[in-house]
Amino acid sequence: MPKWGMVIDLDKCTGCQACTTACAMENNTLPGESWQDVLFYHEGKYPNTSIKWFPRPCMQCENPSCVHVCPTRATYKTDDGVVLIDWNKCIGCKYCMIACPYGVRFYADERPLLEPDIRQAFPGSDGQMWSPPFQNPESDWSKGIGIQPRGVVSKCTFCYHKISKAPAGVTDLDEDDPDLVEYVPACVRTCAPKARYFGDLDNPESKVNELIANKRGTRVFEHTGNKPQVYYLGEHGTVPKFDPQFDDQA
């Protein structure tokens, strides 16, 4: 059984948001409900300023605090290392969102994050929160795949409907391999500069392990003990310190 993980090379990432768009198209997420996002940060003060960006999927942690706090075990970790949500068990208490250091969980049953509210344009049917005309046919509420019902939390699944069907024994899911391309997560497959890699973290021969070892892969927010299964390469591998801009807010 593999332990799926992702490596993101920040030196190659251009911040184009193609991964964000591909994820939204693949998983039918609402505008603003970005299971995969690229965060932008401004650092420094004029004239010495810089902009940084940070692609951020769910970290699918080895020791996921969201799983530990969920009182109904709706959030669980699969044998192949992916954290999923059973929407049939989720009570919408949002404790997992509180406990996630990475802010990658969404409670879409809220005011629209972006206007206009697309849920009103495509009202939900069959229990779905909203029902757009074009949907991914893969849907499994016990794994948090598809369009969620109201009142539950959603998150990135590493495109579990794809990776769970990969042939046994595969070490890396490489979009350049025609035999494997259909099993590659949408964000990895669409990444134009090939900044993302997806493979088995338990296999020492995998490309992801090679990259982590040779390029000093790092994980973010290690102090929380969550041990993410998403590694970052490159000089941007730290999250900038939170520096609120009260003047801007005012």
Partner: peptide, 8 residues
């Protein structure tokens, strides 16, 4: 971890 979308 919300980036510059939530600056404060």
């Amino acid at each position: 971890w919300k980036g510059s979308w939530i600056p404060a």
